[in-house]
């Protein structure tokens, strides 16, 4: 069916209008604010050029935040990917009760981020947390995981990895199940062992899917805010402050909207460069 231009415009208009007012305009605003010295505390709102950016890029917080974001993304992307791959390969073997396994292994998905934060804050808590009970069993010292600067970042990243594993698992499983079975059967006829089959047939065939799932996860994780904010608020100190947390903290806790917006722009630039680079390579 041919759609005429006025009809087309009419159909798209409502969605476009919302996106223009509540997305495009805020994007313009954030660039504008980032050039201002704009703070409720100091009662200022004046143009200062690039001073906010220079201030951020020279601060210790920026280096710390970049490092934290890297660790956070690394753990919460690779760990779910690895576990999801092992689980998907297992499920693909159709062992007895595999559908029950699939349901149970996907269960973390049903929690909302706030519940996940509570579940894992409980796991890490002292003296009631399960993680510390396990430390007792292993004869290791108990830790206050979320209040210790050297353990807080791995701790919240692992919680995030737990939350993200089911989605990666279901996607990799869908990829595995869409493979053609002929090649697999041929390799079995040729007498390949299970490990040879996985190593030389399944993994190369499913590799593009694994890569895509990992990269999509990376794009999600680098922007994610809720879990880390609820569990630690970026603390103790700045030990778990990632890029989104820093952006939020400066605007809504220090009420410094100029610097906060500059953080936002840096956040946007970094996220979009990585995402577009990834999507280009993948041609999604």
């Amino acid at each position: 069916m041919k759609i005429l231009r006025w009809q087309y415009t009419l159909f798209i208009l409502p969605a476009l209008l919302i996106m223009l007012i509540f997305f495009a305009y805020p994007v313009i605003l954030i660039f504008y604010f980032s050039f201002l010295d704009y703070s409720i505390v100091r009662h200022t709102k004046e143009f200062i050029g690039l001073a906010n950016y220079i201030k951020i890029l020279q601060s210790n917080l920026f280096a710390q935040t970049a490092y934290n974001t890297f660790i956070w993304v690394l753990i919460s992307t690779l760990l779910p990917l690895l576990l999801a791959l092992v689980a998907a390969l297992l499920t693909y073997e159709r062992f007895l009760g595999y559908s029950i396994f699939r349901g149970l292994f996907s269960l973390p998905m049903i929690f909302i981020p706030s519940s996940t934060a509570i579940l894992w804050a409980l796991m890490y808590s002292e003296p009631f947390g399960l993680v510390n009970h396990l430390m007792d069993l292993l004869n290791l010292p108990r830790q206050i995981w979320l209040a210790n600067p050297s353990t807080v970042l791995p701790a919240v990243s692992i919680a995030n990895a737990w939350y993200g594993t089911p989605m990666s698992y279901l996607m990799i499983l869908a990829g595995l199940e869409s493979l053609s079975t002929e090649v697999l059967e041929a390799s079995e006829v040729d007498g390949a062992s299970y490990w040879q089959k996985v190593r030389y047939v399944i993994l190369p065939m499913v590799y593009p899917v694994i890569l895509l799932v990992g990269l999509l996860r990376l794009i999600d994780v680098i922007r994610s805010f809720a879990l880390i904010w609820i569990m630690t608020q970026g603390g103790p100190g700045t030990a778990s402050t990632t890029l989104p947390v820093a952006t939020f903290k400066v605007s809504f806790l220090q009420y410094d909207y100029g610097i906060g917006s500059a953080w936002g722009v840096i956040n946007v630039v970094i996220t979009l460069i990585i995402s577009i680079f990834i999507l280009r390579r993948q041609r999604v």
Partner: peptide, 20 residues
Amino acid sequence: LFLFFRLFPWVALAFPIFYL
């Protein structure tokens, strides 16, 4: 363009949206 919106970091727009 709509796909591009989906990649945008939400937190960056928190303050301008609040302002609006």
